[in-house]
């Protein structure tokens, strides 16, 4: 475990926990895309199929349990909690899961490290994670609503992406056989989507105007 990996895991963890705690506390999920949250729950569920079969470390198992528990809790709040669900921008959050899930599944069937159920699901989870933020970005663009909650959430996710890339570079030079093309390429695509968002986020902050993303 290097410092970049730890920082990446911690910002990732904070992004999910900050979102869950705020939804729990203020009983509102305004500006948050349920589609993106459901996709993340699916990402964790398909990636952590090894949770009971391969023991890596106590840290690893606990983190997986927290990610699974918190992502499904967020979805539960947004769908089932009687106050939270009222604040959900349902009419604006119209992105179809299907358009992201199907291509990722097909790509995972073709591009995987080994053609087994677990490996195909693992590749699928990486492809899906790369694009799962898209419904959130579409919702931001439509509602033009970038409050503190959404801003902090997307900022923490962006920090997680950046730290993971530093982690891969570090591991590539320090661990002789560390090569994971699928992880790196899908991770890079995901980070580029964030960079695009950050460009507009930073500009709107600098000019002290409301965020205005291009259509």
């Amino acid at each position: 475990m290097n410092i970049f990996r730890l920082a990446g895991d911690m910002t990732h963890l904070m992004s999910v926990l900050v979102l869950l705690l705020k939804i729990h506390t203020i009983k509102s999920c305004a500006g948050i895309s349920l589609k993106t949250q459901e996709l993340y729950a699916l990402v964790f569920a398909t990636r952590y199929l090894d949770i009971f079969t391969d023991f890596i470390s106590v840290y690893n198992t606990i983190m997986k349990l927290i990610f699974l528990g918190s992502s499904f809790s967020i979805v539960w709040y947004m769908r089932r909690h009687k106050l939270v669900r009222r604040s959900y921008d349902k009419e604006q959050d119209t992105f179809r899961h299907f358009f992201l899930v199907l291509p990722c599944l097909l790509l995972a069937l073709v591009m995987n490290e080994k053609f087994t159920f677990k490996e195909v699901m693992w590749a699928f989870s990486l492809y899906l994670e790369a694009v799962a933020i898209l419904p959130q970005l579409v919702l931001l663009q439509r509602t033009k609503n970038i409050d503190n909650l959404t801003g902090q959430y997307v900022f923490l996710l962006g920090a997680y992406r950046a730290f993971y890339i530093f982690n891969w570079i570090y591991r590539y030079f320090t661990e002789p056989h560390y090569v994971h093309w699928i992880t790196w390429i899908s991770g890079l695509v995901q980070t580029l989507l964030y960079a695009d968002f950050f460009y507009y986020y930073f500009n709107s902050w600098k000019n002290n105007v409301k965020l205005h993303l291009p259509a």
Binding site: D9, S57, N60, E113, T116, W122, N167, Y178
Partner: peptide, 10 residues
């Protein structure tokens, strides 16, 4: 080495 090894990242 890029094979179907144990994945230690989250």
């Amino acid at each position: 080495s890029g094979g179907a090894d144990v994945k230690d990242e989250l």
